[in-house]
Design a protein around this nucleic acid. Structure first.
Lengths: 187, 187
DNA sequence: CTGGTTCTGAGACTGATAGTTCCTGATATC
DNA sequence: GATATCAGGAACTATCAGTCTCAGAACCAG
C-alpha cells in the first residue's frame, strides 16, 4: 500500500546526517541527540523519527565518516618503497593530535559495541583491498612469497599503531617499523 | 593536626573495593555507583566519600585488576621457544570469549580516558619487564642483536592481537605470528 | 474541496544515572 | 560533654535517551 500523509523532508534528512557527521568529528561519539537536532536546525522528534536510538545515528555517521578518505596505492618500484609510504601514512594519523584523538575515541567505541567494530573492520578491509596491487607486484618481483598472509602483514602494521595510539605510547619510526615487518627481529 | 571525628571504617573500604573489582570483572566499566554500594552492602554516600567520581573508582578497580596476573618468564632454551609460549598465552586471552570481551571493554575505555590508557600502559610495561630475561638470554645466544627495540617487538606482538580483538577479527595462528615477528614477511 | 494520515518543530514527560545534600545515629578527639 | 567525621538512608538536581502530545503543514484518496 502507498504511503499516505506528508512525506519525510529530504532536506531534513540531509541536515541531520550532516550534523551527525560533523558532531562525530568534533565531539567524538559523545554528542547528544539534542545537539544533533539543534545543529541540524530541526526538531528533536524528527531525529528520532529517522533513528530509533542514538546508537543508530552514531553507526550511520561512523559509516559515513569511514567511507571518505582512501588514497590510491603508491608504486615506487619496490615493496620496501611502497610499504614505507603506507607505514608513513598510517603513522601520520597517530602523529596528528586531533586525528589521533578522534581515532582513539572511535576504536574505543569499537570496544563497547561490536557493530562499531564491524564498521571499522569493513573499512579497513576496503583499504587493504585498495592496496592489493602493491602485494601483487611484490609477489611478481619475488619479494614476497605467493602464500604470504597479507592480512596478517597489514594487521601487524596497523595493529602496533592502534595499540600504541590507544594507550598513548609514541609511535615508532617508520623505517624501524618497516624493517621489523620485512625482516623480523632476529639477525 | 589530627583528624577529629569518627574514623573511616576499614571494613567498608575493603568491601567497596572488592565490590568494584568484582563488578568491573562481571559487568565491565559500565557498572553503576548504586550497584557498587549495594554489592558492598554499604550506603551510597560511603562510596562517594571515598571516591569523588565514578571515574575514580573505575580507575582504582582497574589498577587493582591489572595488578593481578603475571607469570614468570618461560625458559625453553631458544628465543623461538620462549616467544612461542608468550605468543600462545597472549592469544589465549583473546581466544577465550569472556576474557576477550572484558579486554575489549577495557581497551575501549582506554580510548575515552587517557588515565585508563596510562594504567594499561604501565601494566604492560611491567609485564614486558618481567619477560626481560628472555631477551637477555636471546641476545647472549646471539639470536637478537643487542640493540634490538624490544618494546617494538613486544608491541607488535600485542598490537596485532589487541587490534584484531577490538574489531572482532579471528586471531592468527601462534606459529604464523611468531614466524612473522622473528623473520618478517620477505623471503 | 474534504477528511484522514503522516510529517514538522516545540516542548513536556519518564527513567536511568552521576553527583549533592540532609538526616539521624555512632564513634572518635579535645 | 562539645564537636567533628563517619555510617546508612533517602531526597534532591542535572543530564541524557527515549516517548508522547500538540498545533500546523503537506500529502493522498475520494
Amino acid at each position: 500500500m502507498k504511503p499516505r500523509g506528508r512525506k519525510p523532508d529530504p532536506e531534513v534528512d540531509a541536515r541531520i546526517k550532516q550534523a551527525a557527521v560533523t558532531l562525530l568529528a568534533t565531539k567524538g561519539p559523545s554528542f547528544t541527540m539534542d545537539e544533533v537536532a539543534s545543529a541540524a536546525g530541526v526538531g528533536r522528534a524528527s531525529v528520532f523519527r529517522r533513528y530509533a536510538t542514538k546508537r543508530d545515528i552514531l553507526l550511520d555517521a561512523l559509516a559515513r565518516a569511514m567511507d571518505v578518505q582512501v588514497r590510491t596505492a603508491p608504486d615506487t618500484g619496490s615493496l620496501e618503497g611502497d610499504l614505507l609510504v603506507i607505514v608513513t601514512e598510517t603513522l601520520a594519523v597517530w602523529n596528528s593530535p586531533e586525528l589521533a584523538e578522534q581515532t582513539r575515541q572511535i576504536f574505543g567505541e569499537a570496544g563497547r559495541d561490536l557493530a562499531v567494530a564491524e564498521i571499522i573492520r569493513t573499512a579497513m578491509r576496503d583499504r587493504i583491498a585498495r592496496g592489493g596491487a602493491i602485494y601483487d607486484r611484490a609477489i611478481a618481483r619475488g619479494e614476497l612469497s605467493p602464500d604470504t598472509d597479507l592480512t596478517l602483514l597489514s594487521d601487524m602494521l596497523v595493529g602496533v599503531t592502534v595499540y600504541r595510539g590507544l594507550i598513548d605510547i609514541p609511535q615508532p619510526e617508520p623505517a624501524q617499523l618497516l624493517q621489523a615487518l620485512l625482516h623480523g627481529f632476529t639477525r
